[in-house]
Amino acid sequence: MPIPTTAPSPPRRPADSSKLSGLEIIRFISAIAVLVWHYQHFYYVAAQPVGFVREDQPFYAALRLFYDYGFSGVQVFWCVSGYIFFWKYGSSIHRKELDFRKFFLFRFSRLYPLHLVTLMLVWAMQGIYFSTHQSYFVYADNDLHHFVLQLFMASDWGFQKGYSFNGPIWSISLEILVYLLFFLTVRTFGPSPLVSLVLVAVGGAAVVTKVAHPVFGCIASFYLGGLTATVSRSAFAKAHQKPVKLLLLTFLTASPVIVLTTGLSESRYIKHLFILLYTPALLYFMAEFFKVPTRIEKTVLMLGNVTYSSYLIHFPIQLATALVCFYLGRPIPAGNPLFFLAFLGFTLGLAVLTYRHFEMPAQAEIRRAWMPKVSARAMRRA
């Protein structure tokens, strides 16, 4: 998302240490969008919502964009991942400075430890929930077949019957397939704008024509981010920064107004097209022209880094809440604004603790054990 959430930390260069801090802000806002979108889970009893009215959710007027379109945060995560992967790994993979084993271990050590822990937590809690409700909470396909798929992070490769266990992992599952495609295409062609454009077109066409497999949407978004990174580093873009900045500002401010005031936002095709155009423009602007003050850069970096943990822990928190409320004999107070704030605050706070005290230590231990010849500094930057 991982994006959302799953991208490596943006490269940090002494001469330009805040270069991609703007992308961390986008990652964090996208994570909040997903949390708000999934707030509706609190209205579920077993696998169905009960008495759910979208407009009655807390702070709906202020957060309507997230409540109505928060699912698009996943596409933004994919796009950010593409931007950072092309920026960070594109040239080194093509020059064979980074082989597949190291690339795989960098990704495995970043993603798998927390996935495994949250999978086991959800497995245990869903068993308890099923014993009292004769049904699972929200995600219903929690059998051995789907557990094995989850173990291999293959939950949405096409072998599943539906969402299972820690359901939000679906987007990470798809992104893993795209990581493989990324490595193969970049190793063969380099960070080629033409190859990226072709894959964006193929993925976008599949989405618009409703091709069943969701990996095409991930391909389109990921390579769109990669294409944006490649263009931003081109000689033409560097030579025309002022007009590019003006054009981007105009588009970023005017296009949402036009789409919303003309009613175009009601069209499914316009929604897809808007995301495909707006997201890369936003990434380009935030990476190239938005500078984070040095005094808050570490905070911004932390906000970006905890998006993966917030993405994976928020459903276990919701499931645990459902169990506690059931045993207390009380309904989940989903309509209470204080409960909403407590959910967001607790999720983000726990995400910070999880990142600092579990994700990073586990990642470092795996990399030390399996890549002893790689420097500690290189491991942190990967």
Rank of each mutant, 00 (worst) to 15 (best):
G203F: 02
V374G: 00
M120Y: 11
Y39F: 14
F104V: 15
T294C: 02
F77H: 04
I366F: 03
H94C: 07
W170I: 00
L353Q: 13
Q134P: 02
A334N: 08
A46W: 00
Q126L: 13
L264Y: 02
Y269E: 12
K161E: 13
E288T: 14
F326Q: 15
I219N: 04
L276K: 01
A382I: 02
Y355C: 11
Q40Y: 08
L121S: 13
V186T: 13
L319M: 06
S173D: 06
V257R: 13
S221R: 00
M379D: 03
L252G: 02
L301D: 13
N166P: 07
A212F: 10
E24S: 12
L177F: 09
V45Q: 03
C79D: 06
I3V: 15
V306I: 15
A229G: 12
F183W: 09
F183Q: 07
V306T: 14
F137L: 08
M120D: 01
T6Q: 14
H213D: 04
A239W: 11
V198Y: 02
T294A: 09
Y89T: 03
Y112A: 10
Y67T: 06
C325L: 06
A378L: 09
T347F: 07
L224C: 13
F66G: 00
Q48H: 11
A235C: 05
T188V: 11
L65D: 00
L119W: 08
Y60V: 05
S232I: 09
Y89G: 01
L277Q: 12
L194C: 11
A124D: 03
I296A: 02
Y311L: 13
V259I: 15
Q126K: 10
G82I: 01
R54Q: 14
A46D: 06
H314N: 13
S255C: 06
E55M: 10
H314T: 11
Y327F: 08
M286L: 08
K245F: 00
F358N: 03
E175H: 04
Q160F: 01
G158K: 01
Y43D: 09
D141W: 06
T250D: 11
S171I: 08
Q160V: 02
A206V: 00
V178Y: 02
T262A: 03
K298D: 04
A220V: 00
N305Y: 05
Y311I: 08
D56Y: 06
P8V: 07
Q150W: 03
L224G: 15
A382M: 04
P11W: 01
G203S: 04
S309A: 15
F100I: 14
I332F: 01
R356T: 10
L63Q: 09
Y223T: 07
Y43G: 01
P193A: 08
N166V: 06
A31W: 06
V76I: 15
V80C: 09
L98K: 03
R377C: 02
S135Q: 14
A46L: 00
R380L: 12
S17V: 01
K298N: 05
F104Q: 11
F52Q: 00
